[in-house]
């Protein structure tokens, strides 16, 4: 589904964000990428929808080498990749349902989307996704009336409504408290399994990673230092990835 072949990336200020990364992620996997901040986790993700372009190597998504895509094909690719942001990135003054419909923009003609005319099937899809996440009763509430956890769940519904093949979630629970973090991670894992989506999540909380991941990729200084199934992972593994003992604040804590 997603393949990195000898990918390196050096920013214009000389920082080497990625060093010769080779990974292959299969369809339907729920992968958690862990590592300290600055290890290259975010850069790895932004390569997948080409918000940044690697200086060397190839990124292949769904059979297409994305560095070679033209602008029009790139838009089509981006509709296949859903993103969940740390700060939810909802339009605060818009209703929840409208925010979720933003996920359909890439599939709707410009004119119809400008006058706000969406196919009934798309609206049904959006409402159904809100139902799956359990916030359909908030559909007509303005997004800024919702709590952080609810906003992040709206953004999950938005991503589902986009009907992507891949979901990228960049630190989705960094702004949330422990119980809400667990709820959001649970919802995310459940819906991505239900829809058979390939999901990549950046996390720096090791207990959350251990609990929800199918597979863990560990990064340090732009290099992949660990890649394995969750069964192979223990706290020792994290100490190897981080290169030092685990601190208590690197755990999110229990759901209760």
């Amino acid at each position: 589904m997603i393949e990195f072949k000898n990918v390196s990336l050096r920013y214009s200020n000389g920082v080497e964000a990625l060093k010769n990364v080779n990974i292959k992620i299969n369809k339907g996997e729920f992968v958690v990428i862990v590592g300290m901040s600055g290890a290259g986790k975010s850069t790895l993700m932004t390569c997948i929808n080409r918000m940044v372009v690697p200086t060397e190597g190839e990124v292949i998504v769904d059979g297409q080498t994305i560095s070679k895509l033209k602008e029009s094909k790139l838009r089509a690719l981006r509709t296949q990749i859903g993103i969940i942001f740390q700060d939810y990135n909802l339009v605060k003054r818009m209703s929840v349902l409208r925010n979720v419909m933003v996920g359909r923009l890439g599939h709707t003609s410009t004119f119809n989307s400008l006058i706000g005319r969406f196919p009934q099937a798309d609206l049904q899809l959006a409402m159904n996704n809100l139902k799956r996440i359990g916030i359909d009763e908030k559909a007509y509430v303005r997004a800024d009336q919702l709590s952080g956890g609810q906003q992040q769940r709206v953004s999950i519904a938005r991503v589902l409504t986009q009907q992507p093949k891949v979901i990228l979630a960049d630190e989705p629970v960094a702004s949330l408290d422990p119980p809400t973090s667990h709820q959001v991670m649970r919802d995310l894992k459940r819906v991505s399994k239900e829809d058979g989506l390939t999901t990549l999540v950046n996390l720096h909380f090791i207990d959350l990673a251990m609990e929800y991941a199918d597979r863990i990729i560990g990064m340090r200084d732009g290099e992949v230092v660990f890649d394995g199934h969750i069964d192979e992972v223990t706290e020792q593994t994290f100490e190897e990835i981080y290169g030092r003992p685990i601190r208590e604040d690197e755990k999110r804590g229990d759901a209760s």
Binding site: F118, Q120, L123, Q124, A139, Y140
Partner: peptide
């Protein structure tokens, strides 16, 4: 069952 973009 019709869903509108805006609430009634």
């Amino acid at each position: 069952d019709r869903i509108s973009l805006r609430s009634q």
